[in-house]
Simulated assay, not measured.
Amino acid sequence: MSALDDKYINPLTDFGFKKLFGTEPNKILLIDFLNQILPQRHRIKDLSYSRNEQMGLNELDRKAVFDLYCIGESGERFIVEIQKAKQNYFKDRSIYYSSFPIQEQAKKGEWSYRLEPVYTVGILDFIFDDHKLEDELLHIVELKNQNCEVFYDKLKFIYIELPKFRKKEEELDTQFDKWLFVFKHLSGLQDRPKKLQDKIFERLFEAAEIAKFTPEEREAYEESLKNYRDLKNVVDTSREEGYREGLDKRNIEIAKNMKNDGEPIEKIVKYTGLSKEEISKL
């Protein structure tokens, strides 16, 4: 299916995310989204984009490349990323990336070590293996002591598990709900929902309309969408294979127990789906 079959871009693609949230004309969209998840004292009125590639302090340090990196008018640093699939050491990677906006604040000569707040915001198109509560999709992580009291409030990691968001249009109560609905459903919409008629979403739908793209933008989006779909297909296939593998192991264990209990082969076949040949080898 061509990207041009959709009316609006998919914001979870690299091109779509940066088109909507990573350009100067549309920074009002990023500001509004961030303000739904930031604490009241760190709400932002304006921000500027910084280069999204950060180098280490010396040539031996590895490069860090962010989706978006911006600085609030009061000096707060924001790393904002779309994460489309699980990866090894994802949390380690988040910590590592956050170290660059911290280190760049160092001043030459006499310096008090005072730091501006650093936020890492991850919009995740997957669910954490170790955070499976269905109603808990927003995670705000910060340094706390043994009594669960905040030890340092200038370093925060905010993760949103998008697959856990299942509200329908009529259930959208907050601005945060509306943004998650956009992330999840924008590319499948043909018209602006009634709940998304205010000015901020008017700007978003205008920026997201594929018909208004230049030929170069359309080509770039086609490629970005293809990459997104290819990755999603790999992830979905892997998940399905993992599910089947787990199911097979469970059925083999059940079959062994039934066989040890003297259950007839026909009954074991019925309850496990294994063949007579497979069961005879157990």
Results as ranks from 00 to 15, higher is better:
157 F>D: 05
201 F>P: 07
140 I>T: 13
233 N>M: 07
171 E>I: 10
232 K>R: 15
165 F>W: 06
194 K>F: 05
209 E>L: 08
154 K>P: 02
215 P>L: 04
148 C>V: 06
228 Y>W: 08
213 F>G: 09
213 F>S: 09
187 S>Y: 08
234 V>H: 09
231 L>G: 00
180 L>N: 01
217 E>N: 12
174 T>F: 07
174 T>D: 04
169 E>L: 04
191 D>W: 08
137 L>G: 01
223 E>I: 14
232 K>N: 04
183 F>K: 05
212 K>D: 13
150 V>S: 14
194 K>Q: 10
193 P>E: 04
204 L>F: 12
221 Y>P: 03
143 L>W: 09
223 E>T: 13
174 T>L: 01
147 N>Y: 10
231 L>Y: 01
203 R>E: 05
169 E>H: 06
155 L>T: 13
146 Q>S: 10
179 W>L: 05
173 D>F: 14
176 F>H: 07
229 R>M: 10
213 F>K: 07
230 D>G: 05
179 W>F: 09
159 Y>C: 06
164 K>A: 08
224 S>F: 02
138 L>V: 09
211 A>E: 15
226 K>Y: 14
185 H>K: 11
224 S>Q: 04
196 L>K: 02
234 V>T: 06
218 R>E: 15
199 K>I: 01
149 E>F: 05
236 D>I: 00
202 E>V: 02
201 F>I: 08
201 F>C: 08
166 R>Y: 07
205 F>C: 02
174 T>H: 04
196 L>N: 03
226 K>A: 09
217 E>V: 13
225 L>I: 03
183 F>T: 04
166 R>K: 15
169 E>W: 09
177 D>R: 11
228 Y>G: 02
166 R>F: 06
208 A>E: 02
190 Q>L: 06
145 N>G: 05
232 K>T: 02
139 H>F: 14
178 K>R: 15
148 C>R: 14
201 F>L: 09
218 R>F: 10
236 D>H: 03
178 K>T: 07
207 A>V: 05
190 Q>K: 13
172 L>W: 14
157 F>N: 07
173 D>R: 15
185 H>G: 00
223 E>Q: 12
191 D>Y: 10
169 E>F: 07
192 R>A: 00
213 F>Y: 15
178 K>G: 11
